[in-house]
C-alpha cells in the first residue's frame, strides 16, 4: 500500500506550487490546470471505489448529474451562483448515488463495473432524447459563474482558485474518510468479505457508503466542469468519459489522494499537447502510456515518484547516520 508518511511533505509542496505559480503562467496553462482540478475530484470518486476493489465504468453518471443540475438551474432559474450550485451538485450526485447504490451494493467486479456503465448509458440516452428539456445533442449553454455575486469566467484566476479550494475540501474529506472505520473496512473488504461479516458489519453498507461519497464527488466535479467549459452535452454521461476517469486513476495511481492529482495534471497536459501536435495519434499515445504503466509500474505515476523519492532520501539518510 501507500507510504502515508511521504504525504505531508509532498502534499505541502504540491499545494504551495498550485497556489503560488499560476499567476506567472500564461492563460492557456491556467485553463488546463482548472480542468485538472475538476478531473481530480471526479477521479477521486473512482479512486476511492477502486480502493475497495470496485471498478466502475459508469462514473460519468454522477459527473453528468452534477453538470445538468447546473444546466437546469441556468436554463430555468437563471441561477449561476457557485455558493448555491456546488452544494446542489453535491446533493444531486448524492441522491443519484443513494438510489442507484441500492442496486450497486449487491454487486462486485465485472457486474459492478458493467451495471454502472448501464446506468450511465441510460442517463446518456435520456439526455439525448429529452431534447426539449436537455437540448439534446446541442446540450446547454452555461455561461459565466458568479461567486457571491462576482462574475468568474471559466478561464479566470478567481475561478481557478475557487476550484483549487474545492480540491482542498475534497482532499480533507477523502483523508477523513480513509482514516474512518468505513475507509479501513473498505480496504479490508477487498481482502476478505467473510471476515468483515463475521466481525459484525454489513459489507453492503460499506460499499453503499463509499458509493455515496463517490457519487457526491462526481456531482461536485460536474458543477465545476460545467462552468469551466461553459457548455454541457450528453457526452458528459457517455462511457468514454467514464473510461477517462478510470484511465486517470490508473495513470496517477489509486489508493490515496496524490495519485489522482498527479494523474489529472499529467492527463490534462498530455491531452492538450498531444491533441495539438499529434491530432490523429493522441489516443494511441494514451494507449501506449497506459500499457507502459500497467506493464512496468501498476502503482501509477505516484508510485514512480515514491520510488524516486525513496532512493533519494535513502541516500540522504545514509549520509546522516552517525
Amino acid at each position: 500500500m501507500m507510504n502515508w508518511r511521504a504525504l505531508p511533505r509532498a502534499g505541502v509542496a504540491a499545494a504551495a506550487l498550485l497556489i503560488v505559480v499560476p499567476p506567472f503562467l500564461p492563460g492557456w496553462i491556467l485553463f488546463v490546470l482548472t480542468k485538472a482540478m475538476f478531473m481530480f475530484i471526479a477521479v477521486m470518486g473512482v479512486s476511492v471505489l477502486l480502493r475497495g476493489g470496485l471498478l466502475t465504468f459508469g462514473h460519468a453518471l454522477y459527473y453528468a448529474t452534477g453538470a445538468y443540475a447546473v444546466g437546469f438551474c441556468v436554463k430555468w432559474l437563471g441561477v449561476r451562483e457557485l455558493i448555491f450550485l456546488i452544494p446542489l451538485g453535491a446533493l444531486a450526485g448524492f441522491i443519484m448515488a443513494a438510489l442507484v447504490g441500492v442496486v450497486m451494493a449487491r454487486y462486485r467486479e465485472v457486474f459492478f463495473a458493467m451495471l454502472n456503465l448501464a446506468f450511465s448509458m441510460m442517463l446518456f440516452g435520456a439526455l439525448l432524447k429529452l431534447y426539449w428539456v436537455t437540448g439534446g445533442t446541442d446540450g446547454l449553454a452555461i455561461g459565466t459563474a458568479t461567486l457571491a455575486g462576482i462574475r468568474l469566467t471559466g478561464d479566470s484566476f478567481g475561478y481557478y482558485y475557487f476550484s483549487l479550494a474545492m480540491v482542498g475540501i475534497v482532499t480533507l474529506v477523502v483523508y477523513r474518510f480513509m482514516a474512518s472505520p468505513a475507509g479501513y473496512f473498505l480496504r479490508a473488504m477487498y481482502d476478505n468479505e467473510i471476515r468483515i461479516e463475521y466481525s459484525g458489519v454489513a459489507v453492503r453498507q460499506v460499499v453503499y457508503r463509499t458509493y455515496l461519497l463517490a457519487g457526491t464527488l462526481g456531482g461536485v466535479a460536474g458543477v465545476l466542469a460545467a462552468f469551466t467549459i461553459g457548455h454541457i452535452v450528453p457526452e458528459d454521461a457517455f462511457w468514454i468519459q467514464s473510461g477517462e476517469f478510470v484511465f486517470v486513476a490508473l495513470l496517477g495511481g489509486f489508493g490515496g489522494v496524490p495519485g489522482p492529482m498527479l494523474g489529472a495534471l499529467v492527463f490534462e497536459f498530455l491531452q492538450t499537447y498531444a491533441s495539438k501536435y499529434f491530432p490523429l495519434a493522441w489516443q494511441m499515445m494514451m494507449g501506449i502510456i497506459m500499457l507502459l504503466i500497467i506493464l512496468f509500474q501498476p502503482g501509477g505515476l505516484w508510485a514512480i515518484y515514491q520510488r524516486i523519492e525513496a532512493r533519494l532520501t535513502g541516500k540522504d539518510r545514509g549520509g546522516d547516520h552517525h
Binding site: M1, R176, F177, A179, S180, P181, A182, G183, Y184, F185, R187, A188, Y190, D191, N192, R195, I196, S199, G200, V201, Q205, V206, R209, L213
Partner: peptide
C-alpha cells in the same frame, strides 16, 4: 486481511466491535 499488518487487522476488528457501525467522520 492479508494486505494489512497484524496491528491493523486487530484495529479494524476492534473498530467494528466497539462502534457497532460505520462512522464516517471519526478516525478509526
Amino acid at each position: 486481511f492479508l494486505s494489512e499488518s497484524v496491528f491493523d487487522n486487530l484495529m479494524i476488528s476492534f473498530g467494528i466491535a466497539e462502534r457497532d457501525g460505520l462512522g464516517l467522520l471519526g478516525a478509526l
